Computed example of a mutant assay.
Amino acid sequence: MTQDFQGRTAVVTGGTGGIGSAVVRRLVLAGCKVVSVSLNAEEAAASLAAESGAECLNLDVRDRKVVMDALAPADPDFLVLAHGALGRTGTLFDQPEDSVHRLLDVNVLGVQNCLQAVIPGMIARNDGHVVMIGSVAVYPSLGQPVYSATKAAVHSMARNLRMELFPHRVRVTEVRPGRVASGMHAEMFEGGLAEAKKRLYDPVHCLTPDEIAEAIVWALEKPAHLCVAELEILATEHVIGGVRYHGL
């Protein structure tokens, strides 16, 4: 028997773009009250609120006090952590300091801030579900080494959180998508989204934000005794791994 979303509350970070907005729309349609959290996206937030009826908060997940003040009173049943940052393509040894700090602050500390605001309420109710968006970038990859490191941190945090929450009935799901045509990759190139489409989206089959959102809602609706702990989603044409040899 699946869970009923009627009367339930969800907080979705990164809620005005890509995977986050797709999750917001699906949860609202399912009857959930949704609080969408995003940064500097007033126009997108207004559009999303008008379209879906979700409450939209302009909030920086890096600011612990702001996060605590805004999210703790919301006391959500579901927390979907879909915010994230990328950086310019490069190597581990040539990253600008400000870029490294931004990636760590958004992708790791921002996650921890949200957990600190929301988890105590879930423990008190002995009920709740956290979805953490990781990435297949946890595997070694070229071009985004610091981003990969932050997603490896999210992977570790998700597993650790499940241990910490035992024996409470608070579930934790880590979702690791392959390449998603969400627009997020615009950060990687001087040419922005147009260059990202040219290099990363158009040549291959990419996943869509709505496909990932569908999987997230599928995990959320499972009965309380069942936890989808990890979910890795790839395009059929996307394979991870391989061996590299110099000269071959």
Results as ranks from 00 to 15, higher is better:
residue 3 Q to E: 13
residue 8 R to L: 11
residue 8 R to G: 04
residue 12 V to R: 03
residue 12 V to A: 02
residue 13 T to V: 07
residue 13 T to A: 08
residue 17 G to I: 06
residue 18 G to C: 02
residue 21 S to Y: 00
residue 21 S to I: 07
residue 22 A to M: 07
residue 25 R to S: 14
residue 26 R to Y: 04
residue 27 L to N: 05
residue 32 C to A: 09
residue 35 V to D: 06
residue 44 A to K: 15
residue 44 A to H: 12
residue 46 A to F: 09
residue 47 S to L: 12
residue 54 A to S: 10
residue 56 C to Q: 09
residue 56 C to M: 09
residue 57 L to V: 05
residue 58 N to S: 15
residue 64 R to F: 10
residue 68 M to H: 13
residue 70 A to C: 10
residue 70 A to P: 07
residue 71 L to I: 08
residue 73 P to T: 00
residue 74 A to D: 00
residue 75 D to S: 15
residue 76 P to W: 03
residue 77 D to Y: 01
residue 80 V to I: 15
residue 83 H to A: 08
residue 84 G to Y: 04
residue 88 R to I: 00
residue 89 T to K: 14
residue 92 L to F: 14
residue 93 F to W: 14
residue 95 Q to Y: 11
residue 96 P to S: 09
residue 96 P to W: 06
residue 101 H to E: 15
residue 103 L to I: 10
residue 105 D to R: 07
residue 110 G to A: 01
residue 114 C to L: 04
residue 116 Q to I: 08
residue 117 A to T: 02
residue 117 A to F: 06
residue 117 A to S: 09
residue 118 V to E: 06
residue 122 M to Y: 01
residue 122 M to L: 08
residue 122 M to C: 04
residue 122 M to W: 01
residue 130 V to T: 07
residue 132 M to D: 01
residue 133 I to P: 00
residue 133 I to G: 02
residue 137 A to E: 10
residue 137 A to W: 00
residue 138 V to L: 10
residue 142 L to F: 14
residue 144 Q to I: 11
residue 144 Q to E: 14
residue 151 K to C: 08
residue 153 A to R: 00
residue 162 R to C: 06
residue 164 E to C: 11
residue 168 H to V: 07
residue 175 V to L: 00
residue 179 R to N: 11
residue 180 V to H: 04
residue 182 S to Q: 00
residue 186 A to D: 08
residue 187 E to Y: 06
residue 190 E to H: 09
residue 190 E to G: 12
residue 191 G to K: 03
residue 197 K to L: 07
residue 199 R to D: 05
residue 200 L to Q: 08
residue 203 P to A: 03
residue 203 P to M: 07
residue 205 H to K: 15
residue 208 T to Q: 12
residue 215 A to L: 10
residue 216 I to L: 07
residue 218 W to G: 11
residue 219 A to K: 04
residue 224 A to Q: 10
residue 227 C to L: 06
residue 227 C to Q: 12
residue 227 C to K: 00
residue 229 A to E: 15
residue 235 A to R: 13
residue 236 T to Y: 12
residue 243 V to S: 13
